[in-house]
């Protein structure tokens, strides 16, 4: 038998680790955010030596920037749709895979696979699947479901749907694993007692499973939303924000403002807006879901 040494209160080693962690956090998170906030008040242009303080001009400009409002609308719609779809699918898959046999454990690994793959690789694979002469259209036309290939990536609405489909596919791996972990933490005795009381499968799900996975759902929904609000890689490869900017997320728009239009100051202001929107949404949703956990 081994004994574990617990860190003592006031342990210098613990302090050093905390200092290192906080230092790295400050260096890579806090300082860049402060720098970005400062840049958002300037007209910084990477090509020009001088930068001027412009106050809130960039923020004022945002109020009548139609490209920004289009990208923000698309981002918010995508976030809502994909978060709901990925979490609903995640709960479903988790219930299906909540078994202990080897084959189910292998299937869990497969379910998590999209999450461990790079977004760039995933998008490249899906680009081939969704191409005009891609696998999906091959299947649809050869089985007679459609007469001719569907332009998944070439019409604005279908391109938006395709981006959502791919993002949901990636996120479902994550939501499945989170919900699976939540399911496995539910004591079996609760189901046994419910069975004794004559509860059917639906009642067991409603009164035991759904309330007990609530903490997992809170984490899963919040992280899904944050992931979607800053989505860049999948869209950059799949559609490059097109056609005609229809799938341009706010993250893509920030990069365009900075490195195509040479407007670091304005791009920083948009980034601050996205940060604020993400924070408000994440905190609101977390608060709501936490309250639900308590109510349940």
């Amino acid at each position: 038998m081994t004994t574990r040494a617990h860190p003592r209160r006031g342990d210098p080693a613990l302090g050093a680790i905390a200092v290192l962690t906080l230092g790295l956090y400050a260096l890579f998170i806090v300082v860049p955010v402060i720098m970005s906030a400062w840049k958002s008040l300037t007209d910084e242009n990477p090509l020009k030596p001088q930068t001027h303080f412009v106050g809130f001009d960039n923020y004022t400009e945002m109020t009548h920037d139609s490209a920004l409002s289009d990208s923000l609308t698309f981002t918010l719609l995508l976030t809502a749709a994909v978060t709901i779809a990925a979490n609903a699918a995640g709960i479903g898959f988790a219930i299906l895979l909540n078994k202990t046999s080897l084959s189910y454990r292998m299937m869990r690994t497969v379910a998590f696979l999209p999450q461990v793959l790079s977004g760039v690789i995933v998008a490249f694979v899906w680009r081939y699947i969704l191409a005009q002469d891609g696998i999906l259209n091959d299947i649809l036309t050869t089985t007679g479901i459609t007469d001719k290939p569907i332009t998944w990536l070439g019409t604005p609405h279908l391109a938006m749907f395709s981006v959502g489909l791919v993002a949901a596919w990636v996120l479902t791996g994550f939501t499945t694993v989170v919900h699976l972990a939540a399911l496995q933490s539910i004591p079996v005795e609760l189901y046994q007692a419910a069975k004794v009381d004559g509860a059917g499968r639906r009642q067991q799900f409603r009164h035991i499973t759904f309330p007990m996975v609530a903490p997992g759902t809170t984490i899963s929904v919040t992280i899904s939303m944050i992931t979607m609000l800053k989505l860049y890689d999948i869209i950059a490869v799949l559609t490059s924000g097109g056609p005609a900017d229809s799938t341009q997320s706010t993250a893509l728009y920030i990069i365009k403002c900075a490195f195509t239009d040479n407007r670091f100051g304005y791009a920083s202001a948009v980034a601050m807006l996205l940060l604020a929107v993400s924070a408000v949404i994440a905190l609101s949703v977390t608060g709501l879901l936490r309250r639900r956990e308590v109510d349940l």
């Binding site: 191409a131 005009q132 002469d133 290939p149 569907i150 070439g154 019409t155």
Partner: peptide, 11 residues
């Protein structure tokens, strides 16, 4: 061609 906006340059 149909679906021209879905056709990549290389294709």
């Amino acid at each position: 061609q149909d679906g021209a906006l879905g056709v990549k340059y290389a294709d």
